[in-house]
């Protein structure tokens, strides 16, 4: 039950994009079409879960016992960038089909606030291994949900009559504001 609460809180109440503003570059860049945003959502969720497991291990077995916690930022960012690059090479070698579907997203993810932010949040909250995994998976699902919703909205917008200066990014932000407002209705659903 505790894990379910944690999961739901990461997906809806503390949605990464709409209440914590992480991963906005991807959010506004990819949400122009629905297929791409679906692929991106899956890619981010899986990478985030794997990399936060790795980061938890490094934090728990290396940094914390040695008293090197002030290096967390530097170690995590290098770790995640290397991990994503390695994953890209492995996928390209063993599964070209998967690489064709995913490959372009992997490079975008390598240094991104959402993939980097979750391990830092896990480390700061002092989560144990299972909690970290649940939290990262939930955050990934929440990101994918917001991305797919936004992409569907923007596809509808294509035939709408938008004022000229607001075209593109401007209206996308206002749309995201509306979306955030509706997600805000969920706050207070989970007692903290």
């Amino acid at each position: 039950m505790e894990y379910f609460t944690l999961f739901m809180s990461a997906v809806i109440v503390n949605n990464f994009v709409l209440t914590r503003f992480l991963g906005l570059c991807i959010f506004f860049g990819v949400s122009k079409n629905l297929d791409a945003s679906l692929g991106m959502g899956v890619a981010v969720t899986s990478i985030m879960t794997l990399s936060s497991a790795l980061a938890w291990a490094v934090h728990h077995y290396v940094l914390h016992p040695q008293g090197l916690e002030f290096l967390t930022t530097a170690v995590f960012v290098v770790l995640i960038a290397c991990f994503v690059q390695l994953l890209e090479m492995i996928i390209r070698k063993y599964s070209p089909t998967l690489y064709n579907m995913w490959g372009i997203y992997l490079l975008l993810i390598a240094t991104n606030c959402i993939v980097f932010g979750v391990p830092v949040i896990n480390a700061e909250s002092g989560f144990n291994f299972t909690q970290s995994i649940v939290n990262s998976f939930g955050s990934g699902v929440g990101f994918a949900l917001a991305l797919v919703l936004m992409a569907s909205l923007r596809e509808k917008l294509r035939y709408a009559d938008v004022p000229k200066p607001l075209e593109g990014l401007g209206i996308a932000f206002i749309l995201a504001g509306m979306l955030a407002l509706s997600f805000f209705g969920f706050s207070g659903m989970i007692p903290t």
């Binding site: 503003f21 004022p163 401007g170 996308a172 995201a176 504001g177 955030a180 805000f184």
Partner: peptide, 21 residues
């Protein structure tokens, strides 16, 4: 709150574009 930030930046980007035009 978060929604206000999104709305405000959307409007500001629109204004910047208008001035640029």
């Amino acid at each position: 709150l978060p929604p206000g930030a999104f709305l405000l930046i959307g409007i500001l980007i629109g204004m910047f574009n208008l001035i640029g035009q």
